[in-house]
Protein backbone atom coordinates (compact mmCIF):
# COMPACT_ATOMS: atom_id res chain seq x y z
CA UNK A 1 0.00 0.00 0.00
CA UNK A 2 1.26 3.46 -0.83
CA UNK A 3 -0.25 6.93 -0.78
CA UNK A 4 -1.15 6.94 -4.52
CA UNK A 5 -2.91 3.63 -4.30
CA UNK A 6 -4.77 4.65 -1.12
CA UNK A 7 -5.87 8.00 -2.58
CA UNK A 8 -6.85 6.24 -5.80
CA UNK A 9 -9.02 3.77 -3.93
CA UNK A 10 -10.55 6.59 -1.90
CA UNK A 11 -11.35 8.48 -5.12
CA UNK A 12 -12.99 5.32 -6.40
CA UNK A 13 -15.08 5.07 -3.22
CA UNK A 14 -15.92 8.76 -3.47
CA UNK A 15 -17.15 8.34 -7.05
CA UNK A 16 -19.63 5.68 -5.92
CA UNK A 17 -20.85 7.75 -2.98
CA UNK A 18 -21.29 10.79 -5.26
CA UNK A 19 -23.32 8.73 -7.72
CA UNK A 20 -25.60 7.21 -5.08
CA UNK A 21 -25.97 10.61 -3.42
CA UNK A 22 -26.94 12.19 -6.75
CA UNK A 23 -29.63 9.58 -7.34
CA UNK A 24 -31.11 9.91 -3.87
CA UNK A 25 -31.11 13.71 -3.68
CA UNK A 26 -32.45 14.28 -7.20
CA UNK A 27 -34.57 11.09 -7.02
CA UNK A 28 -33.37 10.45 -10.54
CA UNK A 29 -30.74 8.65 -12.57
CA UNK A 30 -30.96 11.14 -15.43
CA UNK A 31 -27.73 11.46 -17.38
CA UNK A 32 -26.28 8.18 -16.07
CA UNK A 33 -25.64 5.34 -18.49
CA UNK A 34 -27.19 2.09 -17.30
CA UNK A 35 -24.90 0.22 -19.66
CA UNK A 36 -21.75 1.65 -18.11
CA UNK A 37 -23.03 0.79 -14.64
CA UNK A 38 -23.91 -2.75 -15.74
CA UNK A 39 -20.41 -3.13 -17.19
CA UNK A 40 -18.94 -2.21 -13.79
CA UNK A 41 -20.91 -5.04 -12.17
CA UNK A 42 -19.43 -7.42 -14.75
CA UNK A 43 -15.96 -5.95 -14.10
CA UNK A 44 -16.14 -6.44 -10.33
CA UNK A 45 -17.72 -9.89 -10.43
CA UNK A 46 -15.20 -11.26 -12.95
CA UNK A 47 -12.23 -9.63 -11.21
CA UNK A 48 -12.99 -10.64 -7.64
CA UNK A 49 -13.53 -14.38 -8.14
CA UNK A 50 -10.42 -14.72 -5.96
CA UNK A 51 -12.59 -13.76 -2.98
CA UNK A 52 -13.41 -17.46 -2.84
CA UNK A 53 -9.89 -18.80 -2.60
CA UNK A 54 -7.37 -16.12 -1.72
CA UNK A 55 -7.01 -13.85 1.28
CA UNK A 56 -4.94 -10.69 0.75
CA UNK A 57 -5.98 -8.38 3.59
CA UNK A 58 -9.05 -7.16 5.44
CA UNK A 59 -8.82 -3.90 3.47
CA UNK A 60 -8.77 -5.79 0.19
CA UNK A 61 -11.66 -8.03 1.24
CA UNK A 62 -13.90 -5.21 2.46
CA UNK A 63 -13.26 -3.09 -0.63
CA UNK A 64 -14.06 -5.96 -2.99
CA UNK A 65 -17.33 -6.72 -1.19
CA UNK A 66 -18.16 -3.02 -1.23
CA UNK A 67 -17.51 -2.59 -4.96
CA UNK A 68 -19.57 -5.64 -5.90
CA UNK A 69 -22.49 -4.75 -3.66
CA UNK A 70 -22.55 -1.01 -4.39
CA UNK A 71 -22.45 -1.57 -8.16
CA UNK A 72 -25.37 -4.02 -7.87
CA UNK A 73 -27.23 -1.52 -5.67
CA UNK A 74 -26.76 1.19 -8.34
CA UNK A 75 -28.25 -1.13 -10.98
CA UNK A 76 -31.17 -1.80 -8.64
CA UNK A 77 -31.76 1.94 -8.19
CA UNK A 78 -31.68 2.52 -11.94
CA UNK A 79 -33.77 -0.51 -12.86
CA UNK A 80 -36.45 -0.26 -10.14
CA UNK A 81 -36.48 2.74 -7.78
CA UNK A 82 -35.81 5.47 -10.35
CA UNK A 83 -36.67 3.59 -13.49
CA UNK A 84 -38.98 6.28 -14.99
CA UNK A 85 -36.11 8.78 -14.94
CA UNK A 86 -33.88 6.64 -17.13
CA UNK A 87 -34.14 7.23 -20.87
CA UNK A 88 -32.91 4.13 -22.73
CA UNK A 89 -33.13 5.93 -26.08
CA UNK A 90 -30.11 8.04 -25.06
CA UNK A 91 -28.15 5.01 -23.86
CA UNK A 92 -27.54 3.32 -27.18
CA UNK A 93 -23.90 2.32 -27.23
CA UNK A 94 -23.56 -1.36 -28.17
CA UNK A 95 -21.80 -3.08 -25.26
CA UNK A 96 -21.09 -6.14 -27.41
CA UNK A 97 -18.53 -4.01 -29.23
CA UNK A 98 -16.68 -3.60 -25.94
CA UNK A 99 -17.14 -6.96 -24.25
CA UNK A 100 -16.38 -9.05 -27.35
CA UNK A 101 -12.96 -7.58 -28.18
CA UNK A 102 -12.03 -7.43 -24.47
CA UNK A 103 -12.75 -11.12 -24.09
CA UNK A 104 -10.78 -11.97 -27.25
CA UNK A 105 -7.84 -9.88 -26.00
CA UNK A 106 -8.01 -11.58 -22.61
CA UNK A 107 -7.75 -14.98 -24.33
CA UNK A 108 -4.64 -13.83 -26.21
CA UNK A 109 -2.83 -11.55 -23.74
CA UNK A 110 -2.90 -12.97 -20.22
CA UNK A 111 -0.47 -14.20 -17.56
CA UNK A 112 -1.85 -17.74 -17.32
CA UNK A 113 -4.33 -19.54 -19.51
CA UNK A 114 -6.77 -20.57 -16.81
CA UNK A 115 -10.32 -19.56 -16.01
CA UNK A 116 -9.83 -17.12 -13.14
CA UNK A 117 -6.81 -15.48 -14.71
CA UNK A 118 -8.64 -14.93 -18.01
CA UNK A 119 -11.62 -13.51 -16.12
CA UNK A 120 -9.29 -11.18 -14.22
CA UNK A 121 -7.63 -10.05 -17.47
CA UNK A 122 -11.03 -9.59 -19.14
CA UNK A 123 -12.14 -7.40 -16.22
CA UNK A 124 -9.06 -5.20 -16.53
CA UNK A 125 -9.62 -4.66 -20.26
CA UNK A 126 -13.36 -4.16 -19.83
CA UNK A 127 -12.89 -1.63 -17.03
CA UNK A 128 -10.63 0.40 -19.31
CA UNK A 129 -13.46 0.93 -21.81
CA UNK A 130 -16.56 0.60 -19.60
CA UNK A 131 -16.96 4.37 -19.51
CA UNK A 132 -17.64 4.51 -23.28
CA UNK A 133 -21.48 4.25 -23.08
CA UNK A 134 -21.45 7.06 -20.48
CA UNK A 135 -19.22 9.34 -22.56
CA UNK A 136 -21.24 8.48 -25.69
CA UNK A 137 -24.44 9.47 -23.88
CA UNK A 138 -22.94 12.83 -22.86
CA UNK A 139 -21.77 13.35 -26.42
CA UNK A 140 -25.36 12.85 -27.60
CA UNK A 141 -26.94 15.21 -25.08
CA UNK A 142 -24.03 17.66 -25.25
CA UNK A 143 -24.21 18.46 -21.54
CA UNK A 144 -24.19 16.93 -18.07
CA UNK A 145 -25.40 17.83 -14.61
CA UNK A 146 -22.57 19.15 -12.43
CA UNK A 147 -22.91 16.29 -9.96
CA UNK A 148 -22.54 13.78 -12.79
CA UNK A 149 -19.30 15.47 -13.80
CA UNK A 150 -18.02 15.23 -10.20
CA UNK A 151 -18.78 11.52 -10.31
CA UNK A 152 -16.84 11.10 -13.56
CA UNK A 153 -13.93 13.20 -12.33
CA UNK A 154 -13.57 11.08 -9.16
CA UNK A 155 -13.72 7.93 -11.27
CA UNK A 156 -11.06 9.23 -13.67
CA UNK A 157 -8.80 10.43 -10.85
CA UNK A 158 -8.95 6.95 -9.29
CA UNK A 159 -7.30 5.33 -12.29
CA UNK A 160 -4.97 8.27 -12.90
CA UNK A 161 -3.61 7.82 -9.33
CA UNK A 162 -2.93 4.16 -9.99
CA UNK A 163 -0.26 5.25 -12.52
CA UNK A 164 2.10 6.84 -9.93
CA UNK A 165 1.23 3.83 -7.72
CA UNK A 166 2.70 1.49 -10.37
CA UNK A 167 5.77 3.68 -10.78
CA UNK A 168 6.24 3.70 -7.00
CA UNK A 169 5.82 -0.08 -6.78
CA UNK A 170 8.30 -0.60 -9.58
CA UNK A 171 10.98 1.29 -7.64
CA UNK A 172 10.17 -0.05 -4.16
CA UNK A 173 9.17 -3.66 -4.88
CA UNK A 174 10.21 -4.30 -8.48
CA UNK A 175 6.58 -5.13 -9.26
CA UNK A 176 5.49 -4.73 -12.87
CA UNK A 177 2.01 -5.67 -14.06
CA UNK A 178 2.02 -4.81 -17.79
CA UNK A 179 -1.63 -5.76 -18.36
CA UNK A 180 -2.89 -3.46 -15.61
CA UNK A 181 -0.48 -0.70 -16.59
CA UNK A 182 -1.34 -0.60 -20.32
CA UNK A 183 -5.08 -0.90 -19.68
CA UNK A 184 -4.88 1.71 -16.91
CA UNK A 185 -3.11 4.19 -19.15
CA UNK A 186 -5.73 3.65 -21.87
CA UNK A 187 -8.50 4.05 -19.28
CA UNK A 188 -7.03 7.30 -17.98
CA UNK A 189 -6.46 8.53 -21.52
CA UNK A 190 -10.15 8.20 -22.30
CA UNK A 191 -10.83 10.82 -19.62
CA UNK A 192 -8.47 13.46 -21.03
CA UNK A 193 -11.14 15.27 -23.08
CA UNK A 194 -13.51 15.12 -20.16
CA UNK A 195 -10.87 16.33 -17.67
CA UNK A 196 -10.09 19.27 -19.93
CA UNK A 197 -13.69 20.50 -19.84
CA UNK A 198 -14.06 19.60 -16.15
CA UNK A 199 -11.01 21.52 -14.96
CA UNK A 200 -11.43 24.52 -17.29
CA UNK A 201 -15.21 24.92 -16.92
CA UNK A 202 -16.98 22.90 -14.23
CA UNK A 203 -14.55 23.76 -11.41
CA UNK A 204 -14.86 27.40 -12.49
CA UNK A 205 -18.56 27.14 -11.74
CA UNK A 206 -19.71 26.81 -15.32
CA UNK A 207 -22.02 24.16 -16.69
CA UNK A 208 -20.58 21.12 -18.43
CA UNK A 209 -21.36 21.75 -22.09
CA UNK A 210 -19.61 20.28 -25.06
CA UNK A 211 -18.95 22.64 -27.97
CA UNK A 212 -21.65 22.25 -30.62
Amino acid sequence: MNIFRLLGDLAHLASIFILVHKMHTTRSCRGISFKTQALYVVVFVTRYIDLFYSWISLYNFVMKIFFISSSCYILYLMKYRFRPTHDPTLDTFKVEYLAGPCFALALIFNYHFDFTEIMWTFSIYLEAVAIFPQLFMMQRTGEAETITTHYLAALGIYRALYIPNWIYRYYTEGTVDPIAIVAGIVQTGLYLDFFYVYFTKVLQGQKFELPA
Partner: peptide, 10 residues
Protein backbone atom coordinates in the same frame (compact mmCIF):
# COMPACT_ATOMS: atom_id res chain seq x y z
CA UNK B 1 3.40 -9.45 -5.14
CA UNK B 2 4.27 -10.28 -8.72
CA UNK B 3 1.28 -10.75 -11.04
CA UNK B 4 1.88 -14.51 -10.91
CA UNK B 5 1.44 -14.47 -7.12
CA UNK B 6 -2.11 -13.14 -7.28
CA UNK B 7 -3.57 -9.70 -7.75
CA UNK B 8 -3.54 -7.44 -4.72
CA UNK B 9 -4.89 -4.32 -6.42
CA UNK B 10 -8.52 -3.42 -6.81
Amino acid sequence: AKPSEGHDEL
